[in-house]
Amino acid sequence: MNHRFYKLAFIICSITFLLLGIYFIKVLKIDNIDSLANPLPKKCKSSGDYSFLSVVDTGNVKKTFPYDRFIKSANWWCNETVVSSLGYLDSIVPNKAQENEDAVILCLTDSLVSANWNNNNLDSLNALLIVAEKYLAFAETTPQRKFIFKTIANVWVGFVANRLSDLVKHDNKLKYTFKCRYIRAHCTQFGFSPDFGNTSVEKVIINFTEQNWHYLFIERYWYGTSTFFKVITIIPSILLSLLFFYGCICIFQKHYKK
């Protein structure tokens, strides 16, 4: 009987430790050796043909602008081609520089990002940041086109920051991966901070390590939880403490008491 009991206890303990081990490996797995790929070509191969923009109606630029065609054929990731396209647009729709700029801004923000871009892939999000960086640098050196490039770049970085926050909300472990932390740092560098919250467990750990005992035990635990929660946590805690002290007494009596 005794032998059987010890065997069963040994099997249960082994399985428990094995499961705990697997769980910790899963939790602690941080993707530190990952790298980011840029899906956009490095070189600009523009045909210089912007005749497809001639469909734009001078009376309503925003409505008649060929958004999809522009995204597919204008090599938008190269600032030079965007400048050339805008120049062509200004020549066929004169005296409406602001409307022309607004149409290109809409095309490269709402049309590109929400309809034609992979929003779930961190590589794609990072690619937008790379182009945004180029745009911002170009904006600083090109005063006459500063506004459009700065606006588009800021919309992209804001989009990436918000998208990253959404992805982390759906999968909390993502925020510990290299890619996510890299993109977050990149966004922050541009002045856009993605909103990564903490889970309840993370908040407890942070307050524990920062020794905010009053906040943790009085404000959040005593005043911030229900009576039922207090009962189901205090009783087991007392029992565990009693068990601990009983164990200590037993050890002391067995080994140290003469």
Partner: peptide
């Protein structure tokens, strides 16, 4: 969190 500018200094543009 959110658009924050302190005395003209951008803290968060998001």
């Amino acid at each position: 969190v959110g658009l924050t500018i302190d005395n003209g200094r951008i803290v968060n543009s998001n």
